[in-house]
């Protein structure tokens, strides 16, 4: 089993607070890795270190290395936009861009000029189908994306990300802003997608992690407490803090 992403000695400071203290993490290829931990433990920061989104956080300092397929994404001269093309992000709240449904999916293709053909429609259709949205929008592709429901917008964001054929999908509590039915829909999609992609999922619900995860990273106060195959961590946690969290006494 290969590691798709390897994090070595990662330290993240924002302002004067140390958010992540010396993390070493392996994200196995072609699996769902769930990052677990009580709120404020640095889960989202860890996720944002993987597509260099911490660059956008003011006063943030990153030390250490994050390897994507063996290439350190923090090495000088790395093209951030290329990294982000290879690593998709599904955010907590869906932000559909101020354009039509069609153009939302085409956005990534257009900015990267990966497919210059005039008629993108078959491609758009493919990714909308992959995200499970095609049947609901096929008759109104030129409507503004903001007309969709929140749940639909989240699937649109998924389609937008998938259209660039990323290798990894980072999902930052992707169902927390959704109603239960839409949440189930997204979860089902992630389930299907793990056949093809490496998925890193930050989640606040333990049950979701149990349902989806193959691999688990448990964090507490900026430190990685325990990581390993999901079954081992869930059924036989080695560390006291992991046990306490799984039993619901911390978090």
């Amino acid at each position: 089993m290969e590691n798709h992403i390897q994090i070595r000695n990662l330290k993240v400071r924002i302002g004067s607070t140390e958010i992540i203290k010396n993390a070493d993490i392996n994200i196995p290829d072609g699996q769902v890795t769930a990052i677990l931990g009580p709120s404020g433990c640095g889960k989202t920061t860890l996720l944002r270190s993987m597509n260099r989104f911490l660059d956008l956080t003011e006063n943030s300092r990153v030390e250490g290395e994050v390897f994507l397929d063996g290439q350190n994404i923090y090495a000088p001269g790395v093209d951030v936009t290329e990294i982000r093309r290879r690593i998709g992000l599904l955010a907590q709240r869906p932000y559909s861009l101020p354009m039509s449904i069609y153009e939302n999916v085409a956005y990534g293709l257009r900015i990267h000029r990966v497919n210059q053909s005039k008629n993108l429609k078959p491609i758009i259709r493919h990714y909308l189908e992959l995200a499970g949205l095609w049947d609901e929008v096929k008759s109104r592709l030129s409507d503004p994306a903001s007309a969709l429901s929140i749940g639909q917008q989240q699937r649109l964001c998924l389609a937008r990300g998938l259209a660039l054929e990323p290798e990894v999908i980072l999902a930052d509590e992707p169902t927390s802003a959704l109603d239960p039915i839409s949440a189930q829909h997204i979860e089902g999609k992630l389930q299907e997608l793990k056949e093809k992609y490496t998925i890193v999922l930050v989640t606040h619900t333990l049950r979701q992690a149990r349902r989806l995860a193959d691999h688990v990273v448990f964090m507490y106060l900026g430190e990685v407490v325990e990581q390993g195959p999901a079954r081992e961590v869930f059924d036989n946690p080695q560390m006291e803090r992991t046990k306490a969290y799984l039993q619901g006494s911390i978090g």
Binding site: N51, F53, L56, V80, T81, E82, I83, R84, R85, G88, L89, A91, Y95, S96, L97, Y107, G108, I111, H112, C157, R160, G161, L164
Partner: peptide
């Protein structure tokens, strides 16, 4: 972030 996440400059 939505735009930067797909690798836009």
């Amino acid at each position: 972030e939505a735009s930067l996440a797909v690798g836009a400059t």
